[in-house]
């Protein structure tokens, strides 16, 4: 697959912008993202929590390593979290906030594929653990709940980013690059077994 320049994808993220993105395409994300993980993600996906609604936000499954206080924050590192562990929360958020772009790490399952197809959403993978690269691209960071930022460092954080590169691993039709890879690598393993014996 030739990968020349990444396709630009800027907020507000809409179903039109993501509809034509193909599996394996490299994209460069710019604009507004919510960054959240763990219990904070669960809380956000529950109906009780309010977020100042903004249309077309992207969801970054990550908890940035942030230092500072009283609203003066600096992101040291912001690598993605392994997304499989929060799949149901991510799906709930896609539905609740009409999110069309999710960025995370690793494979997601059949439920996420169905949600992506139903809601016209894409799931993108960044480089796991490459926290500094992403941190470099962050222009501003604020906590969605400023009074409790020190306690709730898993977010939600609101990020303005300039350029985060990622690869499309679930497209808006619900097709999954990882699912294909799993089938392919299992076949390779079977071939290796039969040749080794």
């Amino acid at each position: 697959m030739p990968k020349s320049e990444p396709i630009s994808l800027a907020s507000p993220f809409t179903s039109e912008k993501v509809a034509s993105l193909k599996l394996g395409r490299r994209v460069a994300i710019a604009g507004s993202l919510i960054a959240c993980r763990g219990d904070a993600l669960t809380a956000l996906s529950a109906d009780g929590v309010q977020l100042r609604r903004q249309r077309g936000l992207g969801l970054y499954h990550a908890a940035p390593l942030v230092v500072g206080r009283n609203g003066q924050w600096r992101v040291c590192s912001a690598g993605p979290s392994v997304s499989m562990r929060s799949e149901s929360d991510l799906i709930a958020l896609i539905e609740r906030f009409r999110i069309h772009v999710v960025i995370g790490q690793g494979a997601l399952g059949a439920d996420m594929c169905r949600a992506c197809a139903a809601r016209s959403c894409v799931y993108l993978q960044t480089i796991g653990l490459a926290g500094v690269e992403v941190a470099q691209a962050i222009r501003s960071v604020t906590h969605a709940n400023p009074a409790r930022a020190a306690q709730e460092e898993d977010g939600p954080w609101m990020l303005e980013v300039e350029h985060i590169e990622a690869i499309v691993v679930i497209d808006a039709n619900g097709k999954s690059l990882h699912r294909r890879a799993q089938l392919r690598t299992r076949r390779n393993m079977a071939a290796l077994r039969s040749s080794g014996k």
């Binding site: 940035p64 390593l65 590192s77 653990l129 926290g131 941190a135």
Partner: peptide, 11 residues
């Protein structure tokens, strides 16, 4: 990470 003396990984 090395040049800016930041943690290589947030994990």
């Amino acid at each position: 990470a090395r040049a800016e003396e930041r943690p290589l990984c947030s994990d």
